[in-house]
């Protein structure tokens, strides 16, 4: 690989990891430009969208594209790329090491195991139900159904790889679970249980990034993320609406 090719490959790798794991576009742009500048390129051009990253070095025949086919949410990887970029800026590591480290980060699987995510889902659903509805009678059904709903979402999303379908199925399970819990007398209020149990599935990252990207002037990626968030919300809504009309 020539020097130019290595610089572009490193920048694209960094950009690809960041977009794939839920960073906002302006940060990706900024990181790529910084890596290029610290590697000695004065006039680089980057073009970042949520489905692909492009970069070229002005005046030299070097342009490459990296396509982004699937996005997950793992903000630890975003922080790690950020950290590496800072180390490279302080000349603690050189370009080759940076490229190798980025490849390692890309290949690594999620560092938070599934059980910890389930604990997270339980911690989100119960407390938010109490905060929103000011009652504690339905806490345990909410925690259990919320955790189960997140588990179903996680497993389906892992094997089917269709996010919206997984959300729909999880919402259906949450709705039926809540109805069932009330019918056997475990819970008292279906609405409260459903509200709490749905909270771990709220599309928080796409929603926040949609606002941030649009405000930063990225009119391609911002609205696209907005559509992603709306589709997730609609999938959850349809699932719940189906259960409500059935009972």
């Amino acid at each position: 690989m020539t020097a130019d090719e290595l610089i572009i490959a490193t920048c694209l790798k960094a950009g690809k990891i960041m977009v794939e794991n839920g960073s906002e576009i302006s940060r990706v742009d900024d990181t790529m430009m910084r890596i290029a500048q610290n590697a000695g390129v004065v006039s680089a051009n980057t073009y970042v969208t949520i489905t692909g990253v492009m970069m070229s070095i002005q005046g030299r025949n070097a342009t490459q594209i990296a396509a982004i086919n699937q996005r997950t949410i793992d903000l630890e990887k975003v922080a790690q790329v950020n950290q590496l970029s800072r180390q490279f800026a302080d000349t603690k590591i050189d370009l080759t090491t940076l490229y190798e480290r980025l490849n390692q980060i890309d290949a690594a699987s999620r560092s938070f195991p599934l059980w910890l995510q389930l604990v997270g889902a339980a911690l989100v659903s119960g407390p938010l139900m109490i905060m929103f509805r000011q009652e504690v009678i339905n806490t345990w059904p909410t925690v259990v159904i919320g955790t189960l709903g997140y588990l179903v979402f996680y497993l389906l999303n892992r094997y089917l790889k269709i996010k919206f379908l997984s959300e729909l199925m999880a919402a259906l399970l949450i709705g039926f679970g809540a109805e069932w819990a009330c019918q056997i007398g475990w819970g008292t209020n279906v609405n409260d249980i459903i509200i709490g149990a749905l909270m771990p599935l709220v599309p928080g990252v796409p929603l926040t990034n949609a606002v941030r990207d649009t405000l930063a002037g990225n009119f391609v990626s911002g609205p696209a993320r907005g559509v992603e968030a709306m589709l997730s919300a609609a999938a959850l809504g349809f699932g719940i609406a189906m259960v409500i009309t059935l009972f």
Partner: peptide, 13 residues
């Protein structure tokens, strides 16, 4: 607690 839980779901450091 809720913020901690959501932080675990989206895997912040």
């Amino acid at each position: 607690i809720a913020v901690l839980g959501f932080g675990l779901i989206i895997n912040i450091p």
